[in-house]
Nucleic acid binder design. Sequence first.
DNA 1: TACATTTGTATCGCAAACGATTTAATCTTA
DNA 2: TAAGATTAAATCGTTTGCGATACAAATGTA
Lengths: 144, 144
Amino acid sequence: MAVNLSALQLDKQLCFPLYTASRLVTQCYHPILKELDLTYPQYLVLLVLWESDKVNVSLISKRLYLQSNTLTPLLKRMEEMGLLTRERSAEDERNVIIRLTEKGRNLQIQASTVPAYLSSQTPLSQEEFQTLHQLLYKIIQHTP
Amino acid sequence: MAVNLSALQLDKQLCFPLYTASRLVTQCYHPILKELDLTYPQYLVLLVLWESDKVNVSLISKRLYLQSNTLTPLLKRMEEMGLLTRERSAEDERNVIIRLTEKGRNLQIQASTVPAYLSSQTPLSQEEFQTLHQLLYKIIQHTP
DNA sequence: TACATTTGTATCGCAAACGATTTAATCTTA
DNA sequence: TAAGATTAAATCGTTTGCGATACAAATGTA
């Protein structure tokens, strides 16, 4: 079989624009999250907890597609910051239950301006946004 | 102004599917790049060099949207692996010139199967691929 | 009850990513 | 040409992200 080297061009890849757009968009979050003293993955954890508090690490793992070896140190840091508590479940001691503190809950009000700020930074129309959103979830749900 | 907390739902964000799809797709690369003994960002650097060898760090930085504090250790590692050389330019000593070695050049043949493997993993049609590609570049080029 | 397996979490080590800062070389311009 | 600005790359410190591994509790099974 003939070797096709032209497929190796940077601008033909899907991975590269995905990776780059993700990094650049995350960078856009940086200044506004800095005011809340949060990193981007910490913000994602809070998004989960604001929707459903008092969950184990597994649930956060499933929602964010992040493994426990990533989440554990992240959650410990957030515990030190006073945003949440980590406590072994009494019923099933394999579970560690994460609960928002008062401080963690209150942060939701301050964070409520974040999505609007970010969509104001986006060059996409409402329709393009929807299309992109749908295509990305298609990839996410397909990937094992 | 009333505070709108519903915008903080995880599945309404654009950032999150972008971030997750990027991570999951990069993970798809892992097994095949492991056979070439490359990480994903190392593969990206090679994509640049296979297109244009003998370039300074700045050019790689511009093409990949990565800063020198990310690239310098990455390139040093690749130098230790014997994939490339790093040498100060004689004309302008601020520049460090990156050149592929024989080994680095030869890797292109082995890597030529990577794009086909990955597009076989993708659930997207040709048309969806193009749409996604275009929307992502719209974001990339818009972001400062 | 003893033993193996599964499940959930944690630990370790490495490679990115990036903000902030530094160093050195080159360019500008007064 | 000397002072200041700019540019290129490197350094430092912190946080992610993940593979590999370890470990304890819970569950299944002989």
